[in-house]
Amino acid sequence: MSLLKQMRNASWFWYSMICVLCWGAWALLSKLGSQEIPPDTMQFLFTIGTVPVGLVLLIARRGKLEKSPRGIAYGILNGVLSGIGGLALFAAYHTNGNTTLITAAAALYPMITVVLAITILRERFRPIQALGLFFAAIAIVIFSL
């Protein structure tokens, strides 16, 4: 009970809820737009929508960005790969497949992150992650039936 109370009083909890609502709405609007608009055009328009947020952050920082070539390179690569992943998601929605299943399947991406974190970043493997991979595998098998 006290934990719930603690959560309700914490700003991070409400920020997390804002994130969940925003991303939920993002996925749903992606589906609605994809019913008519093809994936590449969806990704083009999506990017236009992300620009104001980037600009507001840039202004808030008064244009001061860290000059770390590595950080910048990883950041840009993030955008390129996110865009390709987004394109594939729009393509999935565009096939008229089931929205609930597509959203649930595409949200399984942490399984790849966990495997790469263990093999490339040499992070410690935790048993709970193995359990997570197990459930992810079951989900994918069910979706392909």
């Binding site: 690569l77 993030n78 790969l81 992943g85 594939a88 998601l89 597509i102 991406y109 974190a117 490339i120």
Partner: peptide, 15 residues
């Protein structure tokens, strides 16, 4: 398509 998204965004998680 969803698997492609999972692969791309999975790498993004590391980046």
């Amino acid at each position: 398509y969803s698997i492609l998204t999972v692969l791309a965004w999975g790498v993004v998680g590391i980046l």
